[in-house]
C-alpha cells in the first residue's frame, strides 16, 4: 500500500537534509511501528507523507497504492485516504469543530465522487464516534481544539480519523500527553480501525503504546534512514536495551 523508495528530503528554508535514503514498505492490513531516538526524523517523515510544504523531496519517491503522491497537495493526499494524527494538533480559534468536521468529511466524499452527508447522518456518526472515545459532545461545540487539554486533542485526532475512514492512518506520538486510561481508549479506537484493506503507521518514541496497538512490524529510524526492521519483539528489545546497540550494529 505504502512504498517509500530511497527518499531524500530536506528543510525547504535552510536545506538541512533530514531524510537520507529511506526505504519502507507497508502492506494493506499491516500495522507498522516506526521508532527511533529524538531527532531521527520521525515527525518529519510523517509531515512529508502528509504533504507539508516546509520540506522538499530531493530524491526518491513515495508510492501510495502504486501511485506517486509527491505532486499532490495535502488535501489531495487526504482525499486519496492518507491521514496524519498530529503530534501537536493545531488550535484554530473561530472555526467551529462541527463545521470543520462537516466540511472535511464532505470535501473527501466529494473528491471520491460520493454524495454529501446530511446533517442528521453526520451528527449520528459524530455522536457514536465520540461515545466510543468517551468524549463529551459539548467539547465539539467549541472552536477546533481550542482549550482542549493535550489528551483531549489526541482523542479529537482519533475522532477525526474514525470519521474520515482513511486507508493509511499515521499516528505521530499519539501516546504523548495521555494517561493510561486515555491511552487505552485511544488504542481501542485505533484497533477498531484495523482491517485487511487499511494500513496503520505508528510513530513513537516509547514502546508503551505498542502494548495496546500491537504492531506487525517494527522499524528503527535513525539519521533519516531505516536502520533495522523486525517483528514486535524488536520494540521490546529497544525498550530493554535502548537504541545504542541497534545504532552500533548499523554503523
Amino acid at each position: 500500500m505504502l512504498e517509500i523508495k530511497n527518499l531524500h528530503a530536506r528543510i525547504a528554508e535552510d536545506g538541512t537534509e533530514i531524510i537520507r535514503g529511506l526505504n519502507l514498505s507497508v502492506k494493506a492490513g499491516e500495522v507498522a511501528a516506526i521508532m527511533g531516538p529524538n531527532g531521527s526524523g520521525k515527525s518529519t517523515l510523517s509531515y512529508i507523507l502528509a504533504g507539508r510544504e516546509d520540506y522538499e523531496v530531493t530524491e526518491g519517491d513515495i508510492l501510495f497504492n502504486g501511485q506517486s503522491i509527491l505532486e499532490m497537495d495535502p488535501a489531495e493526499r487526504a482525499a486519496t485516504g492518507i491521514f496524519l494524527a498530529f503530534q501537536y494538533p493545531m488550535e484554530i480559534p473561530g472555526v467551529a469543530t462541527m463545521e470543520f468536521l462537516k466540511t472535511a468529511i464532505n470535501a473527501q466524499r466529494k473528491a471520491r465522487g460520493e454524495e454529501e452527508l446530511k446533517i442528521p447522518d453526520l451528527l449520528k456518526r459524530v455522536r457514536s464516534a465520540a461515545d466510543e472515545l468517551e468524549m463529551d459532545m459539548n467539547m465539539l461545540k467549541r472552536p477546533l481544539n481550542v482549550g482542549f487539554s493535550g489528551g483531549e486533542k489526541k482523542r479529537a485526532e482519533i475522532l477525526q480519523m474514525k470519521l474520515l475512514e482513511p486507508k493509511l492512518c499515521m499516528l505521530d506520538e499519539t501516546d504523548s500527553g495521555l494517561d493510561i486510561d486515555a491511552l487505552k481508549i485511544v488504542a481501542d479506537g485505533v484497533n477498531a480501525l484495523r482491517s485487511p484493506d487499511r494500513a496503520v503507521v505508528v510513530i513513537t518514541h516509547y514502546q508503551r503504546l505498542l502494548d495496546y496497538i500491537v504492531p506487525d512490524t517494527v522499524h528503527v529510524l535513525y539519521r533519516g534512514q531505516i536502520i533495522k526492521s523486525g517483528s514486535k519483539d524488536l520494540a521490546l528489545d529497544l525498550e530493554k536495551n535502548g537504541y545504542a546497540g541497534v545504532i552500533g550494529e548499523a554503523a
Binding site: A50, R52, D73, P74, A75, F86, V95, F100, T103, A104
Partner: peptide, 17 residues
Amino acid sequence: FYLMARGIDEKTARGLL
C-alpha cells in the same frame, strides 16, 4: 496545512480561516 491535511481544498480552507 492542518485543514488541508483533512481533505479541505486550499481555497475553502483559506476561506474558513
